[in-house]
Design a protein around this nucleic acid. Sequence first.
DNA 1: GATAATTGTTAGCCATGGCTAAACTGTTTA
DNA 2: TAAACAGTTTAGCCATGGCTAACAATTATC
Lengths: 158, 158
Amino acid sequence: MSEYQQQHSPTAYGQDGDALPPVEQHAQQYETVRNAHETELIEDYVELIGDLLRHRGEARAADIATRMAVSQATVSKMIRRLNELGLVTSKPYRSLFLTEEGQKMAEISRSRHDVVLHFLRALGVDDSTARIDAEGMEHHVSDKTLTIMQRFTEQQRT
Amino acid sequence: MSEYQQQHSPTAYGQDGDALPPVEQHAQQYETVRNAHETELIEDYVELIGDLLRHRGEARAADIATRMAVSQATVSKMIRRLNELGLVTSKPYRSLFLTEEGQKMAEISRSRHDVVLHFLRALGVDDSTARIDAEGMEHHVSDKTLTIMQRFTEQQRT
DNA sequence: GATAATTGTTAGCCATGGCTAAACTGTTTA
DNA sequence: TAAACAGTTTAGCCATGGCTAACAATTATC
């Protein structure tokens, strides 16, 4: 280990934005992000399927491919995974549907997405930028922060 | 194409948070996120190397492995990539250094990271949550939004 | 200076998430 | 009803980013 011993000076920490976080905390930050990445795509698919079902009544692989700007083959493969994960049910050549669990996930993702999106708009970000940023950010915002964002948005509204 | 024709009603859009975005816009959101993911890890490594150099005077592969909670083998492989990309220079068993370009990237990442982190704190998020969220969010916040965040943080400070 | 401990590299494995091309199914239409 | 077309699936490729295990080099310690 070539790093110096961490100094345990709790006061210095948090006031000096420049200091490196303690090793364990730093490691946890990166781990959290890596974990988020694993579920991120899954959630995006499930969320989109939920949205399509809600707005269109059906969710076809072709639509998902178009909306995600991805090949149909990729979608097909992904659907198999979602199936194995018990998130969607699919009969070949038919619309997809969400399982109980899939619906729950879609609901959570959607609401998280909405909170972030509305927050960004309340903050003064233009709609199209807010949409893009929200799509990327939503999976990395903790529940704590979400709550704060929601509060902020509501205050702004009054 | 099984989706209905998109209605072109600009007014409805942006008021109804429930509507699906137009196909092209929706596709662009996902594309932007995918692109961000490609550079994300690279930036994280470069940023961390920069931070280690600044705070410790040297950046060893072992430190990176510890701080990222990743195996040394993974770091070694990654460093080879960073080398090929012209972002770092490395002699075996010696500290890493950033190239011009690497320094530029580190600087940008760091400042983006700081803006997000300070913003979250200004918003009322506790330090440790803010750190975790910032790490995930930083790569998905557009310049426009960054500017707004920065302004917000400054206002809060007065 | 020999040996132990640390650090770094390499080889080779795996899962993920893209892709294209080709095959297959289902629907529409001539 | 047969052909054409749209939609879906499968096969097989690639890059990325993890991992472990084995080995190599450097540094520290006795």
